[in-house]
Structures are given as structure tokens and as C-alpha cells.
């Protein structure tokens, strides 16, 4: 097997996902098949090949450091699941 249940649990924790027992079993099998398939890349020699992160050559896009109009607090908070004054409210971070 390319991937174990313990590894699936570890990756789920990194991704902030909570998986049911059935989902874990399903993903172990499916990720094993997919990782087995992508292993075909190992057969290619890429020692002298540079990685590509963008297909079109783009430089860093700089602009003058000047304030631009923004959407404002009311619009920014309009979709907030919970808020207090001009802030997003979340459950307690530190006990």
C-alpha cells in the first residue's frame, strides 16, 4: 500500500478535515490507487529540468505603495458568521 490509515489521519489533521471511519477507508483505497498511478512520473529522468510554477513568464507585479479604495468594514463583515463591533468573532483561541 502507498498510504496507510494512520497517514490518512495525519493528512486530514493537516488539512483541518474530520473524516468518518467510512471516509477514511474510502480515501485509503482511492488515494492508494491515485498515488500508484502518479508514480509513473518516477520513471522520467528530470535531473536537469527546472520546475515550472507558471506557464507564462510573468515578473513580480509591483505597484506604487499607495492606499487604494477598499470595500469598507460593513461590506467586509456582511458575510461574517459572527461579529462584534467591527470585528469577526471566533471561539476562544487560548484557554
Amino acid at each position: 500500500m502507498k498510504i496507510t490509515t494512520a497517514e490518512v489521519e495525519h493528512v486530514a489533521r493537516l488539512a483541518r478535515l474530520e473524516l468518518s471511519a467510512e471516509e477514511k477507508d474510502l480515501f485509503v483505497g482511492q488515494m492508494d490507487a491515485i498515488l500508484g498511478y502518479v508514480d509513473k512520473l518516477r520513471g522520467l529522468n528530470t535531473d536537469d529540468v527546472q520546475p515550472t510554477s507558471h506557464a507564462v513568464p510573468v515578473e513580480n507585479a509591483f505597484r506604487p505603495d499607495q492606499a487604494q479604495p477598499s470595500i469598507g468594514v460593513a461590506k467586509a463583515l456582511a458575510n461574517a458568521p459572527d461579529r462584534a463591533e467591527s470585528f469577526y468573532r471566533v471561539p476562544k483561541v487560548i484557554e
Partner: peptide
């Protein structure tokens, strides 16, 4: 679940809220 979109109502604490909202 912090700024927009679904937020779980079953969660205890911040990390649990994020994890449950996503799941």
C-alpha cells in the same frame, strides 16, 4: 468558517470550529 461561508454550530474552540465547518 471565520469570515464568510458555513460555520459549524457543533464546535468547541477555534480549531474544532474550523475543522467541523470544513468537514
Amino acid at each position: 468558517g471565520v469570515r464568510f461561508g458555513h460555520r459549524s454550530e457543533q464546535a468547541e474552540g477555534l480549531i474544532d470550529m474550523m475543522t467541523k465547518s470544513r468537514s
